[in-house]
């Protein structure tokens, strides 16, 4: 088993942190994991990509993920601005942070498209428009690839204290929404 994830967002949205924390959580679940950024010049607001590989065997490949199983779009304004769909497998899945329904996005892909109002949830719970941890919860709910417990532990450890607890709440809320199946 090898699953490849590409995350698109903008500088300042925690795109690189999301990849790291997904890898940490997968590792805690007993899987092999690798996370790395696409190394743009790190400007606030510029398009940023990060990559995660999760497998049940040692991971050797170092190439950027050009045929992802999963896409996570942290900023829906990137759709159309850059080719976020590039290489997405037809039987893959993408999760978009938006209050819109998947059909309203009019994406030309055979892959499954799910949406979640992650920024809205983040603003409610964290008081900040940083949607990366919320999307991680949504990812766990939609794919079952990583346990929500491991994700909550990884965000609590990274952010610590009250912020850690709040991020874990946001993770759980997004996870429950995806599990409830109201987003496809």
């Amino acid at each position: 088993m090898l699953k490849e994830i590409r995350i698109h967002g903008r500088g300042g949205q925690g795109v690189v942190t999301a990849a790291e924390l997904l890898a940490v959580a997968a590792f805690e679940d007993g899987k092999h994991a690798q996370a790395f950024p696409a190394f743009g010049s790190e400007r606030m607001g510029a398009p940023v990509q990060s990559f995660v590989r999760i497998a049940d065997h040692r991971i050797r490949a170092r190439n950027q993920i050009d045929k992802p199983d999963y896409l996570i779009i942290q900023d829906s304004t990137l759709i159309g601005a850059i080719d976020v769909l590039y290489g997405l497998k037809p039987d893959g899945m993408m999760i978009v942070d938006t209050e819109k329904k998947p059909s309203e996005l009019k994406l030309s892909t055979k892959a499954k498209v799910l949406t979640i109002p992650a920024t809205k949830i983040a603003l409610e719970i964290l008081g900040k428009a940083i949607q990366n941890t919320t999307l991680m919860g949504a990812f766990a709910g939609a794919t079952g690839l990583i346990s929500v417990e491991a994700i909550k532990r990884s965000v609590k450890k990274r952010f610590g204290g009250e912020m850690g607890e709040k991020n874990a709440q946001a993770v759980q809320k997004a996870y429950d929404m995806m599990k409830g199946g109201e987003n496809g």
């Binding site: 890898a23 940490v24 994991a33 690798q34 996370a35 790395f36 950024p37």
Partner: peptide, 12 residues
């Protein structure tokens, strides 16, 4: 070891 590709990669 490779800059960014390894320096910035998280792995076990």
């Amino acid at each position: 070891f490779d800059g960014f590709i390894l320096t910035h990669a998280f792995e076990p």
